[in-house]
């Protein structure tokens, strides 16, 4: 097996076991210290990365233009593919962030019968969307552990998530969608030779980590149940800065909780920072108006170039011979 995959599987497994065992051995460490530390690390790390990026200037205006530029009134301008002002850039960014528009364009090609053919490849877009949105819903749903009383809006979200009445406790779709989409993304990484070839530990690990988080969450809800009342007492104590660690919460919960902490702590130092980076991508967040509005490069160097005078000095005779006007006649 591929070493990157092996490391990731092992890491997730070991981390899960650490959480499982750690919860009963050192509940205060795993229930209080690590979670707070993870949150601090997440935010501090995130901020550090963003500020680190923004510290470097954007010397040139380099949007990738994906449509017709703004020129004449009688030529239809592709406003959101080739924005020429901030408002349209904003729309382009929103479409990118909420609908993964660039990925929607994706196709796959192959050579068949001497032809390059282009086929549908919508699955990455589709499962990518499902993955991110179900993750969002799962995240929002979990706010119920940190709020008391629980806002009505959260209850609505939960009601919609559980709209299909299946079993008891009722199935919440987002969890399964998240797990399913994560497994799809993982399977894709293993099954498509090209994607396997480019995949690193840093690619397998987060998707396995998230799948394990979803998996342990599902296990806790539907199979090996934990005492949710005690869990909420604990999470509320964290949310009100008066941490207590009640007894009798199962190891599975700590495994889940620890993996979540790992995810948060790992987030800023991983490719997951694409969530912040997408806002700073100069090919997407700039307007294509550099012919109309001058863009400033803060480190624009002064460089010596061959001036007309240098040129004329070199070619003066030939120029005169050719009847070209010159500045200095010798």
């Amino acid at each position: 097996m591929n070493q990157h995959l092996l490391y990731s599987l092992a890491a997730v497994l070991v981390l899960g076991l650490i959480g499982y065992a750690g919860g009963s051995g050192m509940p205060y460490l795993f229930g209080v210290i690590i979670p707070y530390a993870a949150m601090v690390l997440f935010f501090a790390g995130f901020a550090m990365r963003m500020l680190g990026w923004v510290k470097s200037p954007v010397p040139f205006r380099i949007p990738t233009t994906c449509g017709q530029q703004q020129s004449f009134s009688w030529i239809q301008h592709s406003k959101y593919d080739n924005p020429s002002n901030k408002r349209d850039v904003l729309v382009r960014m929103l479409l990118e962030i909420f609908l993964f528009r660039s990925l929607f364009r994706n196709t796959k090609n192959e050579i068949r019968e001497g032809k390059v053919v282009y086929n549908l490849e919508i699955w990455l877009w589709l499962f990518g969307l499902i993955f991110h949105y179900s993750f969002l819903v799962v995240l929002v749903r979990h706010l119920r552990f940190f709020l008391e009383p629980i806002p009505a809006l959260l209850k609505v979200v939960e009601m919609l998530d559980g709209i299909l009445q299946i079993g008891l406790p009722g199935i919440l779709l987002s969890g399964f969608l998240l797990l399913g989409a994560a497994l799809f993304l993982f399977a894709r990484r293993i099954l498509i030779p090209q994607v396997r070839y480019i995949s690193l530990t840093a690619d397998y690990f987060p998707v396995l980590l998230i799948a394990s988080i979803a998996g342990t969450g599902i296990l806790m809800r539907y199979v090996a149940k934990v005492d949710i009342f005690t869990v909420k007492q604990m999470t509320m104590s964290l949310a009100t800065f008066s941490p207590v660690v009640p007894e009798g919460i199962g190891g599975l919960f700590y495994a889940h909780f620890f993996l979540v902490c790992v995810l948060f702590a790992y987030f800023p130092f991983s490719k997951l920072m694409h969530s912040g980076g997408i806002f700073l991508s100069p090919t997407r967040n700039m307007a294509n108006n550099s012919r109309a509005v001058r863009h400033i490069n803060p480190w624009n160097p002064k460089l010596k170039f061959v001036t007309y005078a240098d040129y004329e000095d070199e070619f003066r005779e030939k120029m005169i011979e050719a009847g070209l006007p010159v500045e200095k006649k010798e």
């Binding site: 997440f42 935010f43 995130f46 963003m50 500020l51 940190f146 949310a239 009100t240």
Partner: peptide
């Protein structure tokens, strides 16, 4: 970016704000 980070900070700490002044017991 700082404004964005502020929003993120508020979102992350939302439970703390919303729980403020409540016992949450």
């Amino acid at each position: 970016v700082l404004a964005g980070l502020l929003v993120l900070a508020v979102l992350i700490t939302l439970p703390f704000w919303l729980n403020a002044g409540k016992s949450g017991a």
